[in-house]
Design a protein around this nucleic acid. Structure first.
Lengths: 203, 203
DNA sequence: GTCTATAAACAGATAGAC
DNA sequence: GTCTATCTGTTTATAGAC
């Protein structure tokens, strides 16, 4: 996260990441990336040949920031309820540090869904693990049945969407920036609480 | 929705809406809009002067598709639980018809949040109505207390995000297009069920 | 490796004929 | 109103000096 900014290539990557994630591929300008990096446009092409190639480097990096850690939690050998708590905490924590990533990733994927294909194979996501785990919890009488697709969609939606809709939610609820950060922090508890209360069987 | 495609202005608007909502402002090309409309680039400028002006027309139209109807439901004089059901149904129904709108709106707002300011004043959204309604339901013993901000955030997140994350969720869960449409349809019931079960007091 | 200068392609906007 | 042709500014990318 720090200290790697000594060589030009890393300085460029850092600047490119900032500009691309904030403006998107189409809105980003090589000039702005060069300015942000404190260097010259020509040097970007010296290191990365083209805007496309530079973007590709950033996009892979971002996908590796956004997905693998959460997938690792979902695939880990802990209880379903613990997973829900961990995913909520980790996702909100990560997005608070990188608030532009959510809208960036989904905008770029919608612009060109093909980008995903190669990246999901080696992510190690085996959705059946969750399905089986839910079945077992239901069988054990710990929860009401729900399709895994909906449970996971609910969880991720509630974590990620408030970062995408930030200005809209702020406007609706009349929150300022500090209040909204506080609101996001609260969601680390609210989300597991909501999901778990909704599905848990009282014994 | 139909029949208004007889005059050139409406043909342009329809084409522009398609291209802008699919590619975003930065990714859209006047040439592509002209092609889509089956006319000439110069004619776009004859009718709308500039790309900015044309976009503005589309964006206002889209905001009026996306927000007022849902706000109307939230402000209407029906029970909280009924509101939750209606919002889920209406939002999912609307987005199934206009699947590009979700990512488009939030991307453009993040690109330039100022755009929202003028548009929320006259939307008639008074968040206190929901707050008061929740307080009353809690007082009446019908539900556990929850901040209105979280309840509404949960609701809208679960409705909208699956449209934004469509390719990702499809990849994760191994769904094809038909399966995903079915999944979205199911959410009309799953979302109110999840939220209401989570908050409702059993009497 | 890094810069300045410039080429080449593109995209928005206008002029002017019909 | 609609078209073709063209201008102007912008943006990516390269050439070549240091």
């Amino acid at each position: 996260m720090t200290g790697l900014d000594t060589n030009t290539e890393d300085i460029i990557l850092k600047a490119a990441r900032k500009v691309f994630t904030h403006k998107g591929f189409d809105g980003a300008r090589m000039q702005e990336i060069a300015d942000e990096a404190g260097i010259n446009k020509a040097l970007l092409h010296y290191y990365f040949r083209s805007k496309d190639k530079l973007f590709e480097a950033i996009f892979v990096e971002v996908l590796n920031t956004v997905f693998p850690k959460i997938i690792a939690v979902l695939m880990s050998p802990v209880s379903l309820f613990e997973k829900i708590e961990k995913v909520s905490f980790n996702y909100i924590e990560m997005l608070k540090k990188n608030p532009d990533l959510a809208i960036f990733v989904f905008h770029e994927i919608s612009r060109n869904p093909i980008r995903l294909v190669g990246n999901f194979k080696n992510a190690g996501a085996d959705f059946n693990i969750i399905k089986i785990q839910i079945e077992e919890e239901v069988k054990a009488g710990n929860m009401y049945p729900i399709k895994a697709e909906h449970l996971i969609a609910n969880l991720i939606s509630m974590c990620v969407f408030p970062f995408i809709a930030r200005p809209v939610f702020m406007g609706m609820a009349g929150m300022d920036n500090d209040a909204y950060d506080q609101f996001l922090e609260e969601r680390k508890q609210i989300i597991p609480q909501t999901i778990i209360t909704a599905i848990k069987t009282r014994k």
